[in-house]
Every structure is written in C-alpha cells, then in structure tokens.
Design a protein around this nucleic acid. Structure first.
Length: 663
DNA sequence: GTTGTCACG
DNA sequence: ACGTACGTGACAACT
C-alpha cells in the first residue's frame, strides 16, 4: 500500500493506493463503514482511452472510491480479486457520486463488469449534471465549463494542483504518440505512476467536495427543485439508448467510402489543372480564383470570414459556379467557373468520406455497432448534443450516408419527429393569438405567416420568405439575414418584418418581457441576468445580446418537450426500442410486426398540450437502415413498401446503390 | 491552439 | 430607442 496526501483549501486529504491483495483488507472495512453510515462515496474510473462502449473487454484499469478527505484506488488491471472487490463495493455502497457518471463511468463499469447500468445510476448523483444546472455555459461563453479542474478552482481552491497538466506531461514523456485526438497515454501509463495515482485520488476527493457547492449554487440561482431529478433520469435514459447502439453495414460503408474517395480524387484532379493542389487551402483557392478574375463583394458579409478574410465558402463558390448552393441546380445567370464547381464537389465528397463513412468504420465494436455518445445538457440552452460520431449532423437531404446505419437484425427503423416544435413552442410561450388559432385549425404556420404578410394568393417565392422569416424570428434575426438567405430585396424584407410584427405583436412583447424579468430578478441571482424557462431552468444571458433571450427560452423549452417525452416513454417501458434522440426526433428499432405499434406508442408520448398549444409528432416506418427513411419519391413522400424494397436491394447490391447515389 | 469551413436542427 | 440569427461537432490548414 502506498499513500498519498496533501491539503486543499486548508483541509487535508489522504489516499491509499492498493497494490496487493492484503491491501484490500482496509479497503473492505472502509467501504463497510461508509455503507453503514450511509455516506455518499465518489467513484471514478480510469480506462484505456475515451471511447468506452466500443473499447475492448477489460476497458477499466483503475477504480477510485473517495469522500471529501479519504480515498482508495483499486488496480483492476491486476486481476480478479481487485475486480471482485470493486464489484462488491459498487453493489454494497448505498449512495454514489460521479463526475459525468451517466455518460461515462457507469457505462464503463456496466461494460467491464456486467453491472446493471440502471442500478449504478439510480443510487448516483452526477456533479457534471449539477454543474450544467448551475451554469450551462462553456468556457468560450464566459462559463466555467463542465470539467472538474476549472470547477474545483472556482469552488474549492484556486491553487488546486493542475494534475491534468501533470498527467499530460507524463503522457508526452512516455513517447507513446499521445495527442489530443489519439489519447494513447491512458493505456500506456504505468498503473502505479505517482502522477497518475495522485490525479486518480484527487478526482474523487474533488468530486466529493464539489457536490455541496454545486447543490447550493443550483438552489441559489433559482433552478426548480424538480430539475435535478429529471435531468438524472434523462441522462440515465440516454445512456441506456447508447448501449445497444446502431449496427454498421460494413460492405456498404466500405464501398461508399471508396466511391467518395474516387469522386473526391476526380474533382481534385480538375482543381489541380487550375493550380490548386490542395482544395482545403483557402489561400490557394483565393489566388487561383482571383487569377480567373473572380470578384468578392466586401460589402456582402457572406463574402468575408469572421476574421475579415475573403471567404471561399460554399455560398461564394456556388455564386462563381452559377449554381443554387442548396440544390446544386444551375442558375444560368453567368458563365460557370469550372474550378469553383470542382472544389464544391471535391470538398463535399471528401467531407462525407472522412467525417461520416470512415468514422463509422473506425468506431465499430466487436458486434459491428457504433455507440454515439449523447450529452444531455451540452448547449447553453440545455440542448443535447451527440458525438462519436456526430449523428445529428448527418446529411439529411438524401439517404446514402444514413444507409450505413442499421437497426438490430430482423428489425426496421422507426423515426418519430415533432411537427415544427420550435414555432409551436414560440406560439405557446409568447401566447401568440394568430399562431395559436392557426395551430388549432391545423394550418401549417408557414402558410399562416405567408398569408398574413403577403395576402391570400401568396406565391411560391413569397412562401419561401414566409418560411425563412418564421425561423429567423425564432432566432432573433433581422432584415440583413432574411435578404442573404432568400435573395429578396431590402424593400420586400422590410415589409415582411413590419407585417410580421403587426400579425404577431406578442412575439416582440415576449422578448421585451424576458428582458424586463431578467433585470427584475437580477438581485436575487447575484447580479446575473438570466432567462427562466417554464420548466424551471435558468439560462444565463449576455448583456450585449439580450435579444437572444427569446431563442434561449424557445430552444430550451423545445428540448424539454423531447426530454419529458423520453421520461414518459421510459416509464411505459419503451426505452429498449429507442436508439437515438436528436433535437426533435427519436429513432427506434423494432421487429416489423410491432413497428406500427411502437411508432404509434412513441408518438403518443410525444403528443401533449403546452399552454393550450398542441405539440404533435408523426411516426414514419422504413426498412432495416436509417437511410431507408430518407428514400423518398419525386413528391418527397416516403412510400414504406418502396423504401423497404429499395433498402433490401441496396443491401444486396451496394455498387448499384452508390452509382445511384452519385447520380 | 485557433481559424475557416461545412454538416445538422 | 432601435436592432441584432440561435445552437452544435468534426476536420484540415495555418500560426
């Protein structure tokens, strides 16, 4: 047994590193005492990398147990007695504490020791979730971020040792090729390295000390007392979804990767003829395009980057290539620039290959499944995000990428989407009379807006302005954005906004009310300006962007519409069918004979009334692959039988699939 | 590490 | 007083 120790914020701590089976004796009695007293014990694990569910068996190397002043590290890697001791401790302790417990350690312990994930979550509190409730902002938005080190520096001791930095130094000295992207240090560091061990002890000591500070912070900032329980429940549900994961169709995906590589090469070769040998180099592109006498409009914000450089974005390149940036259709307004056209195609194929197809193949586990990691409170509005891979950003305009991902063997894909949830939430929160009446009449809000602004006989292009304008209003956008998005004239856009405000005066009034309330409650929140949502969440505002309050409230409430629906689905036993939750959509896997029932049940849980406004969702059923749900006909309709047949044909004939997708 | 770009809701 | 586009993740080049 080796012991470590030190002082944090004037209070000493002591940690024991178990090295032999004899060392387990004091550990057993320590755990028993904690269990008898009903103490909450912080638990942390160190593994072989950061991808826990697709790692090899024996992922966890070290487990740590600790309170505010005492800790033990257990060397899982040394064999069975230590693994059994860890399992016993986790089953015996009545109350646990972890940092990112639901999203990481509980999953790792479930995977390594076959411990029940729900059991591990039901008796745990997660300081990551508490920190997000206290302040959801990341570091770049002026918050502390969710990481243990900055939180400890803020709440416990600004001079807390930077063991993270020390560990990074150790990893570099190992010369094992450890980088930010390729975190090999975790598997190569010797188990009893003193810096590694000290870091391990401190993690649980700091987590234990952090917890009461975060509880106080959450209670002081006015967050509803119902939210911590709800968020822990939701994190547990989303964690369970990721355990089965999504299967990757390997032959299809490999062929897709190869096809995209060839396509990228083909168009890159065209670029090379114009002197651009690296299509990702903005400098080369600008030089070559200027040689071809292309011009940028410096008064157009789309033509400049945030840093003030000439932009070679898809928008600018599409103008040079004379195509519609969204659809790729020719505009026939000028002579198309062949370099710009080739760059767009090469970049797109390259991105789809590396970010999607290759990522799927690299992330599969021994079952051939990927396990996207759902972070349930990532954005400053509380919105969820998904990483490894970022399935929320897969191309939605066509099916070829989503075709890589399959439901369980013999199952079909079910997707249930909310119907324009953000606009309905805006109508409910701001109590917009005309919007609410339209929703109750089952009228599409884009039609309502177009009619109220442009009159009964509005044209197709006026409808486009109505639709874009609806979204822009939710986000707080203005005339410039509407112009650049729709290409409409300033006069038309100005008229749109004045008519919109006349049709829906409550929207503007709601924004003003949020600002008034934020200033009114400033004192009780320690001088901080914030939006309080009807679900009881407190969202910090920026002094110079107070107009964003409407968007924060709408986005956050829409997120809770999904979150609360997931909780209700879980209560009714639907979680085993669920595979993903993305913003306003749920993806599920079920045998074809149950698919209609499952889809209907899920949709039922997503249908409810928010302040008198119906929030509704529609299920769609496809074939085995996620992509089948995107195989629409020429009227953009999903015909289930056709999609299933097409999906099965593509499974057997990946080359035909890729030839058609390319066309 | 930061910036630019591009994929999504 | 007025008006302001919101929120993500990933990759490659550049500094």
């Amino acid at each position: 047994m080796r012991d470590y120790g030190g002082t944090l914020a004037g209070l000493p701590w002591r940690g024991w590193t178990i090295e032999t089976t004899e060392d387990l004796v004091p550990f057993f009695s320590w755990i028993k005492r904690r269990a008898e007293h009903g103490d909450r014990v912080a638990v942390d694990t160190e593994g072989r990398g950061l991808k826990v569910l697709n790692g090899e068996p024996g992922y966890v190397r070290l487990a740590q147990f600790g309170t505010v002043d005492e800790s033990f590290t257990v060397p899982i890697e040394l064999g069975k007695p230590f693994q059994e001791a860890t399992k016993w401790a986790l089953e015996t302790l009545p109350r646990l504490l972890g940092h990112n417990w639901h999203g990481f350690d509980a999953l790792a312990l479930h995977k390594t020791f076959a411990l029940d994930y729900k059991m591990l979550c039901d008796k745990a509190q997660d300081t990551w979730l508490w920190s997000k409730l206290w302040d959801p902002r990341g570091v770049e938005e002026g918050g502390t971020g969710g990481r243990l080190k900055p939180l400890s520096a803020h709440f416990i001791d600004p001079s807390a040792p930077d063991t993270q930095g020390g560990l990074e130094a150790v990893f570099r000295s190992l010369k094992c090729g450890h980088t930010k992207k390729n975190q090999t240090g975790w598997r190569h560091v010797p188990l009893f390295h003193p810096v590694y061990q000290e870091y391990a002890h401190l993690d649980v000591i700091l987590t234990s000390r952090l917890f009461p500070h975060l509880q106080r912070g959450v209670s002081r900032n006015g967050t509803s007392t119902k939210l911590p329980g709800y968020e822990h429940n939701l994190a547990r549900i989303c964690g369970s979804l990721t355990i089965p994961g999504l299967l990757v169709d390997k032959p299809y995906t490999s062929a897709l990767s190869q096809r995209l590589g060839e396509e990228s090469e083909k168009h890159s070769a065209i670029c090379a003829r114009y002197g651009v040998d690296n299509i990702n180099s903005t400098a080369q592109l600008i030089a070559a395009l200027q040689d071809m006498r292309e011009e940028w409009d410096r008064s157009n914000p789309n033509d400049l980057t945030d840093g003030g450089q000439l932009a070679v974005s898809k928008l600018v390149l599409s103008r040079f290539a004379d195509i519609n940036p969204r659809t790729g259709e020719p505009l026939e307004s000028r002579k198309p620039n062949p370099l710009a056209a080739a760059v767009i195609k090469a970049k797109r194929a390259g991105k789809w290959k590396t970010a999607y197809a290759d990522h799927f193949l690299a992330d599969v586990d021994c079952r051939g499944a990927i396990h996207p990691n759902i972070r349930t409170m990532e954005a400053r509005t509380g919105r969820m995000s998904v990483t490894n891979p970022a399935v929320q950003t897969l191309p939605a305009g066509e099916w070829s990428i989503r075709r890589c991902l399959l439901m369980d063997p013999g199952h079909v894909a079910i997707s249930v989407d909310f119907d324009s949830v953000e606009l309905n939430v805006l109508a409910a929160l701001a109590d917009v009379r005309e919007m609410k009446a339209a929703i109750l009449r089952k009228e599409k809000l884009h039609n309502t807006t177009s009619r109220l602004v442009f009159g009964e006989g509005f044209t197709k292009s006026q409808y486009k302005i109505g639709k874009s304008g609806n979204f822009l209003k939710v986000y707080g956008g203005g005339i410039e954005k509407l112009m650049s998005q729709t290409g409409a004239s300033r006069a038309v856009c100005e008229r749109f906004f004045s008519q919109f405000n006349r049709a829906y005066p409550e929207v503007k009034e709601y924004g003003r009310r949020l600002i008034r309330e934020a200033y009114g409650e400033k004192q009780s929140r320690g001088g901080n300006l914030a939006v309080r949502t009807i679900t009881g969440r407190v969202l910090p505002m920026d002094r110079d962007r107070m107009y964003a309050g409407t968007n924060y409230a709408v986005q956050s409430t829409a997120r809770d519409c999904l979150g609360m629906a997931l909780v209700r689905m879980d209560e009714d036993g639907l979680t085993p069918y669920l595979r993903l939750a993305v913003h306003d959509e749920v993806l599920a896997s079920a045998p074809p004979e149950n698919a209609e029932d499952v889809g209907r049940e899920i949709a039922k849980h997503m249908n409810f009334t928010l302040k008198g406004v119906p929030i509704t969702a529609t299920p769609e059923i496809g074939g085995r692959s996620w992509g089948s749900l995107y195989m629409k006909d020429e009227h953009d309709q999903l015909i289930p039988e056709l999609a299933v047949a097409q999906d099965e044909f593509y499974a057997a004939n990946p080359d035909v699939a890729h030839a058609r997708a390319a066309a």
